[in-house]
Design a binder for these strands. Structure first.
Lengths: 112, 112
DNA sequence: CTTCATGCCTAAGAAAATTATGTATACATT
DNA sequence: AATGTATACATAATTTTCTTAGGCATGAAG
């Protein structure tokens, strides 16, 4: 377990998708959720996550709300409208990629 | 067409898989085959392909045979034994990744 | 004689990870 | 009291792997 490789380019799609379902989440929560949903197959490193969140925010896809909980602060992220649109297009892109890869991996299904 | 994004990390898997089916191929041939199999969805740029081929060769996964055809030379690549093993593990890795992504993208299927 | 297809190549730069830290709180264990 | 683990944020250096943009050469078609 814990060894499914993260293909570069898919992290932002994962973040957006999770936020399209949970309204608002903070970074650490995202890493835990990914572990659970992937049954321990995928670990999001913090060195990848936080820069990705900051970039999505800078692009206007996420907005932040800082909340103090138990004397610790959390930065909750949620989708903007622009971010919701982006999520749709990222998901489509991922599905296209998976279809394309399956076509390449199963060439016998593609003889015309 | 021609806009399916190449997720970083998948190119070597594509090359290995194609070579596991066609015995020997040269670079240009690989770019054309990918276009056909992906129905024009995916274009492998030469700037990505040739360095990737050289790396796979350096790692001992491919071996080269230079052939002169029509006064032009071609570099045919074929899998080594080590390369065949690597292909199997790369394909498994890709399948795991796709399964994991589908789990993340369809969380309703993952409630325990 | 210019363009397109075939066929190889590399260099500069960007994108997006990994790896390795650093900071801080709080709780449990030794 | 000291250490480790979990929570929670962050950045810096490095590596991997692309994209973009070019170069070189042959041969056919226009």
């Amino acid at each position: 377990m814990g060894n499914s490789k993260l293909y570069k380019g898919s992290l932002s799609t994962i973040i957006l998708k999770l936020l399209s379902e949970t309204e608002k989440m903070y970074g650490y929560e995202i890493t835990q959720k990914v572990k659970i949903l992937s049954h321990g197959e995928l670990t999001i490193t913090e060195g990848a996550l936080y820069p990705a969140l900051h970039k999505l925010e800078a692009e206007g896809f996420l907005e932040v709300e800082v909340v103090k909980v138990d004397n610790r602060f959390r930065k909750y992220y949620k989708l903007t409208e622009k971010g919701a649109t982006e999520t749709t297009s990222k998901l489509e892109e991922l599905n296209d990629y998976i279809k394309t890869m399956q076509a390449l991996m199963s060439p016998s299904f593609n003889l015309q």
